[in-house]
Design a binder for these strands. Sequence first.
DNA 1: CAGTGGTCTAGACCACATA
DNA 2: ATGTGGTCTAGACCACTGC
Lengths: 236, 236
Amino acid sequence: MNSKYVSLYGDIVSKIEKGIFPTNSKLPSESSFMEEYGISRDTVRKSLHLLEQNGYIHKIKGKGSFVLDFSKFNFPVAGLISYKEMVEKLNLHSKTIIHTMELEPPDSNMIKLLDLTEGEKVWKVVRVRQINGKKIILDKDYFNSEFVTNLTKEICEDSIYGYIEKKLGHQIGFSNKEITVEPCSDEDKQLLDIDDYNMVAVVKSTVHLMDGTLFQYSESRHRPDKFKFTDFARRT
Amino acid sequence: MNSKYVSLYGDIVSKIEKGIFPTNSKLPSESSFMEEYGISRDTVRKSLHLLEQNGYIHKIKGKGSFVLDFSKFNFPVAGLISYKEMVEKLNLHSKTIIHTMELEPPDSNMIKLLDLTEGEKVWKVVRVRQINGKKIILDKDYFNSEFVTNLTKEICEDSIYGYIEKKLGHQIGFSNKEITVEPCSDEDKQLLDIDDYNMVAVVKSTVHLMDGTLFQYSESRHRPDKFKFTDFARRT
DNA sequence: CAGTGGTCTAGACCACATA
DNA sequence: ATGTGGTCTAGACCACTGC
């Protein structure tokens, strides 16, 4: 089903995570992967390139490929991942409370953000994420209703991304994110267990499908003490 | 000097930025780049892959490559870029004030963060960044003195990365970042024009050389209203 | 059907590291 | 000298899009 280079990538990732390829150790050479898997060098190189981009390994010309230490700054809440997927990955105790779910005509700001045309409506979904009994995150999502039709309470409580990908058959492609720190709004104070904090960390993003169409704008507002974003970058 | 695929990448980037390849338009096909530049398809594909990763284009099987809208998600403070490079890119009016610059034995926390061995010392550099007359950012950098030797006030006021890359001949490779929001420390209040804010956005990072050696830990503390981080991500 | 991008191969030459 | 990764080529077949 998968391409060869993706399955080799997956094999190596799981061997790194299991410690079969330990941190700081040298990975087998490209040619030994060629032999072991009976594939061409270019295909091996595609797998290693993927590992490199995702921060698993580091390649040095003439020396080899080395497993990086990714325990120091743990997981990527970065990337394009849904709240449900994150909760499952981190094994959190979480509950989602739906505050608003309505189909409405967009205001001028949303028309601009979602590139809407006359007459198109948007789904506005406001959800509160409760973790370990505390209301920590306020998620405000706006979906172009041309692409995301028929939302229900059940879908919003479970996973909207799952619905879009599995039921509607759309493929989610890429996103832009922006992280800022803003003063608490009245809505934040009302809906979150904000304690004495007077600011929130805000992640604003636009999300596109594989074919390039923009379908979602979202604003995720986090209690500042519970917010963490990690990133891996290379010098270019 | 550069490889073929990097120079083709550069050509296309500049054509996109100049508007010769406009937003949302279709890029020439891989085969037309092959002809135009007299190179193989694989080499063209490497260039396009780079463009895709950096958020310039989006490829759709059977249709073509399309230029993404670059204006919505403006500049990358993301990536691995120095303060000086950012200031120059964004054309800011900035001044750097050096608060501390000393060679000292590391505490136990720094030994762990920088993977130090017995007897190695670290350069501790604390700098305040003033933008448009306001003290906005407090940068605390720690360098392993085995790799970064002989810092001077002039270097710290100009660009430490420039010194490392151009004078010492090291190549900066990759980094891990972590973004959090923390309460103001006394030091923040004392050194920054913090106004009435009681929190700061904090970017902690470790930076490695091309050969994998860890040489820097840094903590960048930003006044919350002036902080913005942008990111581009793909679904995997 | 022709045009597009996605995967894969086999082979070549180069640059760098190590011994 | 050998082993490593980095670049490049020429050709093949597939899957998807659009006419």
